[in-house]
Simulated scan of single mutants.
Amino acid sequence: MSAAGRSLVALLALGVALPAAAGEDGQDWDLRQTGRSRTLIAYTAYNNGIAIAVRCADGGLEAVLAGLPAPRDNADTRLLEIAVRDDDFTPQQWNVAIDRTVALSELPAPFARKIREGGRLQIRVPNASQDGRNVRYDLTLPPSGAAIDQVLTTCGRPLVDVRDAELAALPDTGLPSNVRWLELPRLGLPPSARYGRGFSVISCVTRADGGLRDCVIESDHPYGSGFGDAALRAASRARVAQDTPPGAEFRPVRITFRATFSTGGFESREDRAAAREQRRLERELRENREAD
């Protein structure tokens, strides 16, 4: 099987029905719909084994890279460095799928809007070769004049969103330098959880009283798991402190946070380490409040 074929098989594992090969004629991305699963996917594949897809499945949006070197550890996320057209490389955290050669964007809508113009796409995978060197892919994206827009519209996502620049400017922590947590989001599993593991990424806007407003589910996997709604409930109880210069007017800013869920028996070593770190941070925040 060709490298492009293996990448398309990886997309098939995500529940997408695709033909044996994807076109690279530069006209637009290939578009495929499956009525049974209510899935619409725009995709393109390359002879070096990489396939890129934007899909809407039952209302959930995902941006997918398939055919990557599998990560060496068992973590749920991996660092990829991405450069689109003339941009510099930007480090981004992507989520690792069950097929560990597949990665899912934490911010799929901004990524889809960014790449639909086509042009050069560079992907750098740190420490991915057998000898520990970076692996770099230099691709030419066909412009998508209709296919990606159709997927975005099917999932109820806008074709233009002013929030994209704000989200792109955030550091890995999801918090601007003048914002810190006072009360971390306390996650609870959704009632009757259907999946043992999953994640959600939420964006919110800060309020002057420390609360959060206008919270939005940016990504939710598996879609329909209830993890996104559970993360929204956690955000409604979280609080932040925002440093404002004396005499300056409060200006709300956008933040993001990633919520990882695992039920009993599905926790990984990384999950347990993250839980310990969460407890340490909560203890530190509590001690700081008591000291004040």
Results as ranks from 00 to 15, higher is better:
residue 172 D to A: 15
residue 66 A to V: 09
residue 241 A to C: 01
residue 55 R to D: 12
residue 9 V to I: 07
residue 118 G to W: 11
residue 30 D to L: 12
residue 200 S to I: 04
residue 212 L to Y: 10
residue 91 P to T: 06
residue 13 A to Y: 00
residue 189 L to H: 08
residue 10 A to S: 11
residue 79 L to N: 00
residue 195 Y to S: 13
residue 222 P to N: 05
residue 241 A to S: 15
residue 143 P to H: 07
residue 185 P to N: 01
residue 28 D to S: 01
residue 166 E to F: 14
residue 116 R to S: 02
residue 181 W to Y: 11
residue 179 V to N: 05
residue 71 P to N: 06
residue 12 L to C: 12
residue 193 A to S: 15
residue 160 V to R: 15
residue 289 R to F: 08
residue 266 F to R: 13
residue 228 G to T: 04
residue 290 E to V: 14
residue 122 Q to K: 15
residue 74 N to R: 14
residue 24 E to W: 00
residue 246 P to V: 05
residue 89 F to A: 13
residue 142 P to N: 12
residue 58 D to L: 12
residue 236 S to M: 03
residue 211 G to P: 00
residue 150 Q to L: 13
residue 250 F to I: 01
residue 163 R to S: 15
residue 81 E to R: 14
residue 158 P to W: 05
residue 246 P to F: 03
residue 107 L to S: 09
residue 123 I to Q: 05
residue 57 A to H: 11
residue 157 R to T: 01
residue 149 D to V: 03
residue 127 N to D: 15
residue 209 D to W: 06
residue 156 G to V: 02
residue 40 L to Y: 11
residue 59 G to E: 07
residue 134 N to S: 02
residue 112 A to G: 13
residue 233 R to G: 00
residue 244 T to M: 07
residue 200 S to A: 15
residue 182 L to M: 14
residue 85 R to V: 15
residue 9 V to C: 03
residue 167 L to D: 08
residue 220 D to T: 08
residue 245 P to E: 03
residue 182 L to R: 10
residue 11 L to K: 01
residue 277 E to W: 01
residue 128 A to F: 07
residue 237 R to A: 10
residue 283 R to S: 14
residue 117 E to V: 14
residue 139 L to M: 09
residue 131 D to W: 11
residue 172 D to T: 15
residue 61 L to T: 01
residue 129 S to A: 13
residue 187 L to P: 02
residue 44 T to A: 08
residue 175 L to W: 02
